[in-house]
Simulated scan of single mutants.
Amino acid sequence: MLGRNGLVLRGGFRFGPDEAAPPGPAGLPARSILLVGQAGGAPWPHFLRWRREQPPDLADPLDDWARQVIGAVAAEFGARSVSPSDRPYLPFQQWAMRAEGLRPSPLGILMHPRYGLWHAYRGALLFDVEIPVQAPREVIHLCDLCVGKPCLKSCPADAHSGGGFAYQACLDHVRGTAGEACRTTGCLDRNACPHGAAYRYPADEQAFHMAAFMR
């Protein structure tokens, strides 16, 4: 089911007995978790086919699609599915770092040794039982090897050049006349990163994400 929709398992781990784990399918603290996500733009054509059959006024269609796909897998395997957009928010980035041994890039996106910045987490499966989970292997953090840091120098609004993400400056630029390139081809800082270029999202997918950012 996941592979047929361009999604992949992104690792997992077992919760310790003293951790504040979210509820599993039985309502008790979950014992294990598997993360589900994408590597590159593989899910995009599957999402577009689904989107054409849905009402045009969906507020968050990509989240809805991912919930439907991952929820069906959860039902098949006796798990509970959760989403990064669920409220209250769940610590997906911390889970991802623990499951895959990744670290954040200067843009805040986790840097993957193969996919670069072109990957995402679309949900997770929570289990009431302990399941076999492979420990993450040690990975090279590519940002440590990057001398030029082009991801900090390509944004006309300098959204990532200071201390943290300058959200309002980015939003104002993207919404303005000078932000057409960002709206149509995606974040210039993200696209400037040389790693994982083969997995770069297609332009229309990047435009979709930028439109969601501007709402």
Rank of each mutant, 00 (worst) to 15 (best):
L58D: 03
R51P: 01
A74T: 06
L34Y: 15
G78I: 02
G41W: 06
R80D: 01
E76P: 00
S32G: 10
Q68N: 11
F77H: 14
L48V: 08
A30Y: 09
R49A: 14
P55M: 06
V69W: 00
W44P: 10
V69P: 05
P43G: 09
A66K: 10
E76G: 07
L28Y: 08
L28H: 14
A66Y: 06
P56M: 09
L62K: 07
L34F: 15
W65Y: 15
A72I: 01
A74P: 07
A30V: 02
A75E: 14
L34W: 15
S81E: 15
A59Y: 02
F47P: 00
A42L: 11
A72M: 05
S81N: 13
A75G: 15
D60Q: 12
P25C: 04
W44V: 12
G37W: 05
V36R: 12
I70T: 07
A66R: 10
A79D: 06
D60R: 15
R80W: 00
D64A: 13
R31K: 15
R49M: 01
E53S: 13
E53Y: 02
P25L: 03
A74N: 08
I70A: 05
E53W: 03
A74M: 04
L34E: 14
A75C: 06
L34R: 15
E53F: 02
A59I: 01
G41D: 14
I33Q: 12
P29K: 11
V36F: 11
